[in-house]
Each structure stands twice: as structure tokens, then as C-alpha cells.
Design a protein around this nucleic acid. Structure first.
Length: 321
DNA sequence: TGCCAGGCGGGGT
DNA sequence: ACCCCGCATGGC
């Protein structure tokens, strides 16, 4: 298949709040068609195609926006700044997690790293692929979804992919592609979610309170508390929500010695639960529970820097599908 | 081989 | 309210 050629529309620069580490921010949970070690591509929309290319030569973040002619430029600067979390007050988060037995490395080895946010639909895809699957399996599914259903683009010689839109999942060919992506029983959830988004069911979701937004997403069959909360963390930076799965529940019980994990983690992390969960997976390299548990109990809470090992920070260096 | 792996829903108490 | 199982898939 031939890639759609996009052209440079315009450029701008952004000034991140300190501390900021571009390399770590771009590396984490990313694929090699969106990060190559220096340039970080940020998909903005697929219809019409629009994508920003970020690089970081000094203290500012430089942005080049690519698309087709006459594309709508509205709100791109705001979106990209938000997607990279450039305005987030990390120091306030660091205050909450100082002395945390698992997260104490975050203000050190991961200093300045932001969580990249994404669209509601893309966040749903990510969250659904995490259900009842290991890190490698979940991201393998996602990788195949992007390759099979996304739109190949080329900007100034750089090949990349724009994530598929909800509409792209509502055909019979898409059903076959999902089968090929080996998402198993999650395919039904993905299609159900796509059709509800397409019908505009989640418009103005951002206006709802956390609890109501979570309940609304849970109306998708196959989406429960974990998936709904993770989706809202990734797509709206609603850090007050705690995406609690069996992995984190067991870790918290054993490492923090908690009984009622949900209640006590909320008291511990307060308005930063979502970001705390995100970094918990990063520092433990998203290892499966038994290994993550052993590491946390041994105080081995520094993320691995070996490129051969598949971790959230090295994902972009690997070809996993 | 059988059983798990960052869930979920439907069925049984 | 709980508890339990099946659900696709791949890896160990």
C-alpha cells in the first residue's frame, strides 16, 4: 500500500514547564513510527490527516505540523501542548510520591518525564488491549491494530501511521482485520465502543464529573471500571481516578501492606492516582505480576535501561509485530 | 499439556 | 453483595 504524502503546513514552538525531559516523554509507551530517538510524532487527526513532529534542540519544543492542503489548523498548538503535558505541575506530583516505596525513583531517574495523552478513541483502544493480558501481549495487539487499520503517511521522507478512526472499525473488512490482529474476544468490545463513539454518545464527556464519566464509559459492553478509568486518565488526564487491576491490587497489598487497596491508595495518591499508576508500571518495566512483586519487595524500583529488554521505555526500539 | 495474563459480564448463591 | 466461570490468544 502506498503512503499518503503530507506536506509541512506551518511551525511553532512551545515552552515546557520545568522539569521537562523530552527524550523520556517521547520514549514511553511509544512505537517506532512515532518516535525514532529524536523526533516525536503526535497524531492529531486522521480525517483530515494532521500530525505534528516535535523535536527538542534546546530548552524549547519545536513543532512542525504536517497535513494536506487547506487542512484546519484550529487549536493545534493547544492540543499538542496538552498531549505532551507541557504545562503539568510535576513538582506537586513529586511532593505526593516522595518516600513512596515504589515511586521514589520517579523524581530521579524519570525526572521531567510527562505522560503523553491521546484522543478518547485511541485511549479506549489502548485500555481495551490491556484487559486480561500482559504488557507484551496487549501492546502486540495494539501494534497490529495500527498496522492493519491505521493510515500510512509520509512526511518529508518520514514514514508514519495515523491511528484508525472509530468509523474504520465499522465494516466487515475491519472485523476480519481485528481477527488478524489477534485481539480475541476484545474485538466485540472494540466494535461496540466504535459504534457508540460514532453515534456521538460520548460528546461532552469532559463536562461530566469523574464518577459520571466513568459510568458513561461503562455503558459500553466489555468496558468495566478499570478500562473506563484508564481511558479517562489517558484521554482527559483525570488523575483523580484510580485504574485498579489485579496487578496493582496485589502489589499494593504486598508492598504498601494495604487491606482496602482502593480506598487507601486514593488517600495516599489523592489527585495524582492516575499518574501514579502510570509511573508504577514504568518503574517496574511492566513486568508480569510475579516478577514485578519480587522487584518491588527487593526495592528494585529503577526502570531497566537495557535496550534488549522489552519495557515501556524501550518499546519504541523494538519491532513487536 | 494446562494454566496463566494490568478484565468483564452473566449466572449462581 | 458476593463468588465463579467462560471468554480468545500466545507464552511458558
Amino acid at each position: 500500500m502506498k503512503a499518503l504524502r503530507l506536506q509541512l503546513l506551518y511551525s511553532f514552538e512551545l515552552e515546557p514547564k520545568n522539569p521537562f525531559n523530552f527524550y523520556l516523554t517521547a520514549s514511553c509507551y511509544n512505537f517506532n513510527w512515532w518516535f525514532n530517538g529524536s523526533k516525536c510524532l503526535i497524531p492529531i487527526s486522521k480525517d483530515p490527516p494532521l500530525i505534528a513532529v516535535a523535536h527538542h534542540p534546546h530548552d524549547k519544543v519545536m513543532m512542525d505540523v504536517y497535513g494536506e492542503k487547506h487542512a484546519d489548523h484550529v487549536n493545534v498548538e493547544e492540543f499538542v501542548e496538552w498531549a505532551l503535558g507541557l504545562n503539568e505541575d510535576l513538582m506537586s506530583f513529586y511532593n505526593v510520591i516522595e518516600d513512596d516505596a515504589i515511586l521514589r525513583e520517579v523524581p530521579k531517574s524519570l525526572r521531567g518525564m510527562r505522560m503523553r495523552a491521546t484522543s478518547l478513541w485511541n485511549a479506549l483502544l489502548i485500555a481495551i488491549c490491556q484487559q486480561n493480558a500482559s504488557f507484551a501481549q496487549g501492546w502486540g495487539m495494539l501494534c497490529r491494530i495500527y498496522r492493519l487499520l491505521g493510515l500510512e503517511v509520509e512526511l518529508n521522507g518520514i514514514k508514519s501511521i495515523l491511528p484508525p478512526s472509530p468509523r474504520d472499525f465499522l465494516t466487515s473488512e475491519a472485523e476480519a482485520k481485528l481477527k488478524e490482529a489477534k485481539v480475541g474476544y476484545r474485538a466485540k468490545t472494540i466494535m461496540h465502543a466504535a459504534s457508540m463513539i460514532e453515534k456521538g454518545y460520548f460528546e461532552h464527556l469532559e463536562r461530566l464529573k469523574d464518577e459520571d464519566a466513568e459510568e458513561k464509559l461503562k455503558e459500553i459492553k466489555g468496558v468495566g471500571s478499570y478500562t473506563a478509568r484508564l481511558t479517562l486518565v489517558l484521554s482527559q488526564r483525570r488523575y483523580g481516578l484510580l485504574p485498579l487491576d489485579r496487578w496493582l491490587k496485589k502489589l499494593a497489598e504486598e508492598v504498601y501492606k494495604l487491606k482496602n487497596v482502593e480506598e487507601e491508595l486514593k488517600a495516599k495518591w489523592r489527585d495524582w492516582c492516575g499518574l501514579a499508576v502510570f509511573f508504577t508500571t514504568v518503574v517496574l518495566d511492566a513486568e508480569v505480576l510475579s516478577k514485578a512483586l519480587r522487584r518491588a519487595l527487593n526495592g528494585d524500583v529503577k526502570p531497566s535501561c537495557q535496550s534488549e529488554k522489552l519495557t515501556p521505555l524501550t518499546l519504541w526500539m523494538h519491532t513487536i509485530c
